[in-house]
Design a protein around this nucleic acid. Structure first.
Length: 120
DNA sequence: AGTTTGACAGTAT
DNA sequence: GATACTGCCAAAC
């Protein structure tokens, strides 16, 4: 793949890798940080295409409502839930995370913001 | 080489 | 206020 960050997925990987321990973010936030708010779908698709050898904390990426959207991509939602709880993130029985507490906006990260400006 | 689908989100009715 | 439609880019078929 392109490690220079030319493709959308490459940039997504980079942003996901920056998610702080114990924090979570959303597809829309990442897409918006990259300058394409409408491309939220691509973010999810990019994560679905993660090679695997890349140690990306994909379990920290949730949908807009804090729901573990990609739970079944880990084999079972409970796996993702366990990963998050292990980081101190409280996950409800319905696999929902309180974004008001654990949400991390990529747009507020200087490194991510620099990446966005590089795109323009 | 063209078509279809995919971890979503925002707007439009 | 809730439901439906569109937009977006890349990868798999």
């Amino acid at each position: 793949m392109d490690t220079t960050g030319t493709t959308f997925t490459a940039r997504v990987y980079r942003v996901v890798a920056m998610i702080p321990y114990g924090k979570v973010t959303t597809f829309g936030a990442i897409a918006r940080a990259l300058g394409s708010p409408k491309s939220a779908r691509m973010v999810g698709f990019a994560l679905a295409s993660i090679p695997g050898h890349l140690d990306l904390p994909a379990h920290r990426v949730l949908n807009r409502y804090g729901f573990l959207s990609g739970g079944w991509h880990f084999g079972h939602p409970d796996i993702m839930k366990a990963e998050l709880e292990d980081e101190g993130v409280v996950v409800s029985g319905d696999y929902i995370v309180d974004l008001g507490v654990y949400f991390w906006d990529p747009g507020m990260d200087p490194e991510v913001d620099a990446l966005r400006e590089a795109h323009y």
